[in-house]
C-alpha cells in the first residue's frame, strides 16, 4: 500500500528521464557498446546480409553479370518449381521422412523415458542413460557408417541374424531398396537421438507430484494404471507443446543422413529439399531455381513456426524458442 503512490509518481518521470538521457546513457555505456556492437555487425553480415541473395530467385541469375544487368523474371522460378516433377517428389520425400521421424522419435523417447523412470536402482539407471545419450554426440558420418555396416550384405549383423533365425534365405540389400529408405532414416534417427530426446520427458516425469502416485497406490492402482492415469497425463502438456513446435520444422527433414545413405538406386525416395538445393544450385549451377526452393522452404517454416508458437501459447505454455 505504502509504495503505491511512490510508483505512481516515479513512473512518468522515469520515462521522461530515459527519453531525455539516451545520449547521456550511451556515453556512460561506451564499454558495453564496444563489447557488443562489433559482434552485432558480424551477425548482420553473416545472418542478415545474405537475404539480399534472395533476389536471385526472381532473376535468371548469371554469376558473370552485374546486378543491374540481371534479367528479372518475376515468379517464373517458383512456377517452374511446382510444375517440376523432381521438386514435387523431393517435397513428398521431405514431408514423408519428417513425419515418420517425428512419430517414431516421439513414441520411442516417451516410452523410453517412462520405462527408465521405473528403474529404482540409481547406478543401473544412470548406466543405461549414459549409454543412451552416447550416439547423440557422434557425427552423422559415423552413424551412417555404422548403419551401412550393420545393414551390409556381406557380414552385416542384421542380415546375419535374420539368416540364422531363418527369416530370410539370402541377405537383403537394405540400402538398395527404395521402399525401405524412409524406415532406415527413421531408424537411424531413433538410434541416434532416443536417449537425448528422452531427457526432457524424464525431467517432466520427475516433476510430477509424488503424492499423486501414493494416493493412486492406496486406491489400489497397479503400475499400468499409474502410468496411464498419472505419468502420461503429467507429461501431456510438454508432449503437445513439443509436437506442435516440431510441426514447425516439418520441411527440415535433415540433409546429412539422406545425402550420406542415399544412392542412385533409391534416389527417387531419398532426396530432400536440401539435397535438391545443393544439386541444382552448386552442382548444376542453376542458382535461381535453387534459391527459389530455399525461399519456399524458409517461408513455409517461418509461417509454421509462428503459427505453432501461437497454438502453443493457447495451451497455456510460453513459447519454447
Amino acid at each position: 500500500m505504502a509504495s503505491t503512490p511512490e510508483i505512481m509518481t516515479s513512473k512518468p518521470s522515469a520515462k521522461a528521464g530515459t527519453k531525455l538521457s539516451v545520449m547521456k546513457r550511451m556515453r556512460g555505456q561506451k564499454q558495453l557498446m564496444l563489447m557488443s556492437l562489433p559482434i552485432m555487425i558480424y551477425v548482420v553480415i553473416f545472418s542478415y546480409y545474405p537475404i539480399w541473395g534472395w533476389t536471385m530467385a526472381f532473376q535468371n541469375y548469371s554469376p558473370a553479370k552485374k546486378f543491374s544487368e540481371q534479367q528479372w523474371v518475376g515468379f517464373k522460378q517458383f512456377i517452374f518449381l511446382f510444375s517440376d516433377e523432381t521438386f514435387l517428389r523431393v517435397l513428398r520425400n521431405t514431408i514423408g521422412m519428417s513425419v515418420i521421424n517425428m512419430v517414431f522419435g516421439f513414441v520411442t523417447a516417451i516410452v523410453f523415458a517412462i520405462l527408465l523412470n521405473e528403474i529404482k536402482n540409481k547406478l543401473y539407471k544412470r548406466t543405461i542413460q549414459t549409454i543412451s545419450y552416447l550416439p547423440h554426440f557422434l557425427s552423422w558420418i559415423i552413424v551412417t557408417g555404422i548403419v551401412a555396416n550393420t545393414l551390409s550384405v556381406d557380414g552385416g549383423i542384421v542380415n546375419d541374424v535374420l539368416m540364422k533365425l531363418g527369416f530370410i534365405n539370402e541377405p537383403i540389400m537394405w540400402l538398395s531398396k527404395p521402399h525401405y529408405f524412409w524406415g532406415i532414416v527413421a531408424g537411424s534417427h531413433v538410434w541416434k537421438e532416443v536417449g537425448w530426446n528422452a531427457i526432457i520427458y524424464l525431467a517432466a516425469i520427475t516433476s510430477i507430484d509424488p503424492s499423486l502416485y501414493e494416493a493412486a497406490e492406496i486406491d489400489g492402482a497397479n503400475r499400468y494404471k499409474k502410468m496411464m492415469h498419472i505419468t502420461l497425463p503429467g507429461i501431456k502438456s510438454i508432449v503437445i507443446i513439443l509436437l506442435i513446435m516440431n510441426l514447425g520444422w516439418i520441411l527440415e527433414a535433415g540433409f546429412e543422413v539422406q545425402y550420406l545413405l542415399g544412392n542412385g538406386v533409391v534416389i527417387d525416395w531419398s532426396q530432400t529439399i536440401d539435397i535438391f538445393v545443393l544439386k541444382y544450385g552448386l552442382q548444376l549451377g542453376n542458382y535461381s531455381l535453387a534459391t527459389a526452393a530455399g525461399i519456399f522452404k524458409t517461408a513455409v517454416s517461418i509461417t509454421l513456426i509462428f503459427a505453432a508458437n501461437k497454438i502453443a501459447q493457447r495451451f497455456g505454455e510460453d513459447r519454447l524458442i
Binding site: G53, G281, Y287
Partner: peptide, 13 residues
C-alpha cells in the same frame, strides 16, 4: 533462430 538465408546465398557470401 527462425530463418536463415539458405545455402546458395550463404555460399555466395
Amino acid at each position: 533462430m527462425y530463418f536463415n538465408a539458405g545455402l546458395i546465398p550463404s555460399y555466395f557470401l
